[in-house]
């Protein structure tokens, strides 16, 4: 067998083996790997590289060494999943470097983390003043995770005591001009509904690049033809506007009438409508 055919066979078979090994070793990203997993990956790649191009070494040498470098990290990972103590040993523990706004110098030293490293990592998180930090942890991967002090954290709806309507993930129902039946069924809608909605928007499905439905059943589309204007969903804002108008009308009627009974009726209902608006408006935004 000529050498070049051998190289092709080796390259293909080792490539396939390597593909499955990396698949079985897990879905972690490169940046999440600890040093041991990182080295394992490099060694596996090295073994493949050497044996693909060096024909003097028999192919089963490659298989044996690759198998060992695969099965060992695999077992380590398997045991790590089961035992916390083992996990601490193999993957390392996260270490607190700032607590209650104070830097833990001893912990920094243990991790060989210099003050400059700490400042750099903080700057990466857009924090330029150590005094703004309440708590910071150095993860085994070398990443620094920071909890800023309460007043330096971004405002959330909870901080503002805002009532927000819950929502679910939107479903993609049109892709490349074709309806997707499964996501449609997930939100208990059918293609006829989709056709009606598209007709309301005055667009044909062939012209739709992407269409999504939110948990309130509102359809938004992106068209191939970007010069066409697509109406955004107007049902909910329109409803809120109508409710506000009616509320104002009822108040006006109440002021205008001389009949005491009618006056009371208008006032009562205007208050009731205001209550309904306050109640439903989070859902209509």
């Amino acid at each position: 067998m000529p050498d070049w055919i051998q190289i092709i066979i080796r390259a293909f078979s080792l490539l396939i083996i390597l593909f499955f090994f990396t698949k079985w070793l897990g879905m972690k990203q490169l940046s999440q790997l600890n040093i041991f997993e990182y080295i394992t990956g490099i060694v596996l790649g090295g073994i493949v590289a050497i044996h693909v191009s060096t024909l003097d070494s028999p192919i089963h040498f490659a298989l044996i060494s690759m198998f060992i470098w695969f099965i060992f990290p695999y077992l380590v990972e398997l045991i790590s999943l089961k035992s916390k103590a083992f996990r601490n040993f193999t993957q390392g523990k996260s270490r607190v470097v700032i607590q209650n706004g104070k830097i833990m110098e001893d912990n920094l030293k243990k991790e060989h983390y210099s003050t400059d490293d700490l400042l750099e990592s903080l700057r990466e998180r857009n924090i330029f003043k150590v005094a703004d930090v309440e708590f910071a942890v150095l993860e085994p991967t070398g990443k620094l995770n920071v909890l800023p002090k309460r007043e330096n954290r971004p405002i959330t709806a909870k901080d503002l005591a805002l009532k927000l309507a819950p929502d679910r993930e939107p479903q993609t129902v049109i892709m490349d001009g074709k309806p997707l039946l499964e996501p449609l069924a997930n939100i208990s809608l059918n293609p006829t509904w989709l056709e009606t909605e598209l007709e309301k928007m005055n667009v044909s499905i062939e012209n739709v690049f992407l269409g999504q439905v939110d948990s309130d059943g509102q359809l938004t589309v992106d068209l191939y033809d970007d010069t066409l204007a697509v109406p955004s969903p107007s049902q909910k804002p329109l409803l809120l506007a109508t409710m506000n108008k009616c509320q104002a009308d009822l108040e006006l009627f109440g002021l205008a009438t001389n009949n005491e009974m009618s006056k009371q009726m208008y006032q009562r209902n205007s208050e009731k409508l205001q209550k309904a608006i306050d109640y439903i408006s989070p859902y209509l935004r």
Partner: peptide, 19 residues
């Protein structure tokens, strides 16, 4: 009527009850 439509369209139980 619009509230009725919205209640039927949504698949969120909370929202449906609110409508």
């Amino acid at each position: 009527a619009t509230l009725g439509i919205l209640a039927n369209q949504t698949n969120e139980v909370d929202a449906r009850n609110a409508y």
